[in-house]
Nucleic acid binder design. Structure first.
Lengths: 147, 147
DNA sequence: AGAGATTTTGATAATCATTATCATTTGGAA
DNA sequence: TTCCAAATGATAATGATTATCAAAATCTCT
């Protein structure tokens, strides 16, 4: 029931005056063990129920909001009403882009950032202070192309 | 009640076997007259009621879906559950980006596209056929900066 | 370890946006 | 003008998320 690298999570909860509960540990564990997939709330709920059959969906919503507030996870908006949760990597989540396959829905991460020059141009031309960006490419992944 | 440049809209409706109604003409007119603003369904509904007090919200939803299907408007996903409708410009809607102010919510269009080189890199490296992209910058607009 | 104060949880009601249903009205061809 | 299919408006249904609240669990203090 207890998993790797959650000592710091426990400490963070205690430091903020929150209580350490089985539900919170298991929900974070499910997100950690499924990095790379893009799970929605219902899918996280189903996976948590494997370890904790009596868990309520409201607890999943509450815990996801808590983890987001604590900067442990980020809610990544994929557009078109789709999103996923992923572990926060020291605020570096904006350093990658997403390829979203319109056929199978697969989401691939592009671990690069070529936008610095464009950001400089835009922030001077539009007098806009850029804090973050989101870049998504929609199309057809290699697997679906070959079918 | 009748407005400029809706001849082609009438023709398109007739060509597709749809009927020309006051509701459809007024809803498209409201969207045309408010280009640049980013209206959601409720705001469009309120503006349509000025000319057509008895209109139902369901008709607004139905007509927006119809206009989208006919490629007359595009639903632009701004992320974080926000979106706007804009007139389709021959499929060139992806040729601009959006600056979204986190303070006042203002949406500014950036009428440029610097992503061609990046698209080439990504499509070869990831074997992904890119049909469209979405690029959004989040931050603070000039008006909010000066406050 | 046990009692007590407080937080968290699970069940479920409430909410909000959107979609479906259906009787009535309307557009447009004959 | 008549007639039928399509469109509309009112409202019920839906689905996702949030709020409520009594019961259970956590953690502090002894």
């Amino acid at each position: 029931m207890v998993m790797e690298n959650n000592q710091s999570f426990k400490e963070k909860l205690i430091n903020k005056g929150y209580k350490v509960t089985n539900q919170r540990e298991i929900i974070l564990d499910v997100i950690r063990k499924n990095e790379g997939k893009h799970l929605d709330t219902e899918e996280i709920y189903d996976l948590v129920k494997v370890s904790l059959p009596g868990v309520g969906i409201a607890t999943v919503y509450r815990t996801l909001a808590l983890l987001e507030e604590m900067d442990i996870i980020n809610k990544i908006d994929l557009g078109a009403g789709r999103w996923k949760y992923e572990i926060d990597r020291n605020g570096e989540s904006h350093k990658h882009h997403h390829l979203i396959c319109s056929v199978c829905g697969e989401v691939t991460e592009v671990e690069e950032d070529f936008l610095e020059r464009l950001e400089d141009l835009i922030s001077s031309k539009y007098d806009f202070l850029i804090n973050d960006h989101s870049l998504k490419f929609y199309g057809c992944c290699s697997k679906c192309k070959s079918k």
